[in-house]
Design a protein around this nucleic acid. Structure first.
Lengths: 220, 220
DNA sequence: ATAAAAAGACAGACATGGATGTCTTTTTTT
DNA sequence: AAAAAAAGACATCCATGTCTGTCTTTTTAT
C-alpha cells in the first residue's frame, strides 16, 4: 500500500464523499423527472440505489439533502461560467449561445425547481438567497474582465447582463411550460444578440457591424 | 318575490357557484403563499373557511380543484388582455407596461407555480398545454388587431411578442427567486421598449434613428 | 297550498397510504 | 476489534379519498 499524502482523504472518507455525490446527483435527476413536489427521500434513495437508512446516514434529513443540492448546483454554475470564460474569450454573440447551452441542461431545470420552491420555503430561501447574490456579483466581475470595453459604462453593462439573463431564462421556462413555440427560439436569440450589440459602448473606431460578428480572441 | 328569468341560475346553483369560486380563490392564495408542493386540500379548505367534506362535495378530488384553478386562471388571463385592449388602443410602450403590470399580480405567480408543476405531472399537463396553445393563438390575433401596422410582417410580429413575453416573464421570475436586482427592472423595461420600437416594420416616413441605437434585422 | 320526497350543501369520522425521522442491526473496511 | 457504511424496523404524522349524517332548499305529488 502506498503512503497517503498528508491531508489526502482516507479511502473511507473518499467513499463517503462519492456516496454523497451520488445522492446529490440522484436528487437532481429526481427533481428533473418528478419536480420538487414529488422529490421525496424514498424516491431519491431509490434513484441512487441506496437504502433510505444509508441515505440518512449521510444527510441527517431530507431538507439537508436539498440544501446541499442547492449549494452543489451553485458551484456547478460558477464552474461552468469560469470554464466557458477560460476556454474562449467570448464575443457577445458567443456569450449568448454559451449561456443558452447552459440553460438547456438538466442542472438548470433542477435549479429552477429549487428556486421556485425557495420562494415559499424560508429554510431554502435562507440558503439560496445569499448564493444568488454571490452569483450575480461573481458573474458580473467575471464578465467585466471578459468585456473590458464595457468597463467604461458599468450601468449599460449591468443592463445588458440583466436583459440577457431574463430573456434567455424566460424563454427556457416558457419552452418548458408550453408557453412558447420552439420555432421562435432561434429568432429570439438572434434578436438578443443584436440588442447586445446595440448596447455596447460606442467604439472608438471601425464599429462596422458585420452580419455574423466573429469571435475575436482577446489577450487574457 | 320576483319572477325568475328563464335560464337564470336557481339560488342554490348560485350559491354553489359562489362556493366553488371561493374555493378556487383560496387555492390561488394558497399557491401564492405556500407554493404548489404545500398546496394541500386541508390548507385550501381552511383558507376558504370550509370543511374538507364540503370542499370535496364541490370538487370530487384535489386534482380536480387544481385543474379548475388552471382553467380559471386561463380565463382571467384572456379577460385581462381583452380589457386592456379595449380600454386603450396600445402603443408599444404601453403594451410593455400593461403586460408588466399583469405579471406582477398574484395570478401570475399562481399560474407559474402550476405551469412548473405541470412539467412533471401528466394530468396537469393534459389540461395546461391546450390552454397555452389557445392563449398564444388568441393573444396573437388580438395583438394583431391592435397593431395593424405590423400585419405586413407576421414573423417580425411573432418575434416581438416572444421577446416581450420571455423578457418580462423571465424578469418577473428572476425577481421572485432573487436572481436579479430590483433596480434593473426599469432599465430592462425601457430597453425592451426600444427593442420593440426597432422591431417595428419600416415606416413609410421619418424613420429618424433615435439616440438609442436600433437593432437592424438580418434577412433570414 | 301543503306535505312528502328528492336533491343539494356542508360537516365530520374513518381507513389507507406514503413520507418523515429515529433507532437498532447487519455488513463492510481498515 | 473498532469504526464507518448500509440496511432495515419501527412510530408518527399528514394528506387523501370515501362514507355517513344533518340540515336546508327545491321539486313533486296530492
Amino acid at each position: 500500500m502506498r503512503r497517503p499524502a498528508v491531508d489526502e482523504p482516507t479511502p473511507q472518507a473518499l467513499k463517503s464523499m462519492q456516496t454523497r455525490a451520488r445522492l446529490i446527483d440522484a436528487t437532481i435527476r429526481v427533481l428533473v423527472r418528478n419536480g420538487y413536489a414529488r422529490t421525496t427521500t424514498p424516491q431519491v434513495a431509490l434513484e441512487a440505489g441506496l437504502s433510505r437508512g444509508a441515505m440518512l446516514h449521510h444527510f441527517e434529513n431530507g431538507v439537508s439533502l436539498i440544501k446541499e443540492t442547492i449549494m452543489h448546483l451553485h458551484e456547478r454554475r460558477l464552474h461552468a461560467f469560469r470554464r466557458a470564460a477560460e476556454r474562449n474569450a467570448l464575443d457577445h454573440g458567443a456569450m449568448v449561445r454559451t449561456y443558452w447551452r447552459q440553460i438547456q441542461k438538466p442542472a438548470f431545470v433542477a435549479f429552477h425547481e429549487l428556486a421556485i420552491a425557495a420562494r415559499t420555503n424560508a429554510e431554502l430561501a435562507a440558503i439560496l438567497m445569499p448564493l444568488q447574490a454571490e452569483f450575480r456579483q461573481r458573474f458580473d466581475s467575471l464578465a467585466m474582465t471578459l468585456y473590458p470595453d464595457w468597463q467604461s459604462e458599468p450601468e449599460r453593462f449591468a443592463l445588458a447582463m440583466a436583459v440577457s439573463q431574463a430573456t434567455m431564462e424566460g424563454m427556457a421556462i416558457n419552452l418548458m411550460t408550453g408557453a412558447m413555440d420552439e420555432a421562435l427560439v432561434e429568432p429570439v436569440l438572434a434578436s438578443l444578440e443584436a440588442q447586445l450589440h446595440a448596447l455596447r459602448p460606442v467604439q472608438p473606431a471601425l464599429a462596422a457591424s458585420s452580419p455574423q460578428p466573429i469571435a475575436r480572441r482577446k489577450s487574457s
